[in-house]
Design a protein around this nucleic acid. Sequence first.
DNA 1: AAATTGACAGCTT
DNA 2: AAAGCTGCCAATT
Length: 111
Amino acid sequence: MAQSDFYERVYHMTRQIPYGRVTSYGAIAKAIGSPKSARVVGYALNASAGNIDIPAHRVVNRNGMLTGKAHFLGSQAMQAQLEVEGISVKNNQVQNFQKYFWQPPVLSLDN
DNA sequence: AAATTGACAGCTT
DNA sequence: AAAGCTGCCAATT
């Protein structure tokens, strides 16, 4: 059992991010039904640090900046991983962020 | 139980 | 336009 359903939703949504794409905390928060919980999304991902099953490196802030970079195991792990996936990172910022941005599907609570 | 913190985002000055 | 302040929600101390 995970910490809470909220965390589970964040992890689940993060796992859905396709290879070579990125998204934002706010987008995930909105997708799980709490658009104001962007901070909590980051908090959840922080707790998931070290979980290779969760591509947290594909999650950045709305500016496309690697704000969570410092929280990874390696100081350059996040940027390196993104570049491996074909995403250009310059000065802790994703280039062509809008182009690589992946809009997470809104969870159907009614379903 | 109350106060502080935090991988954000939006509004105000 | 750029910098600062406030709001939000769950977790931690």
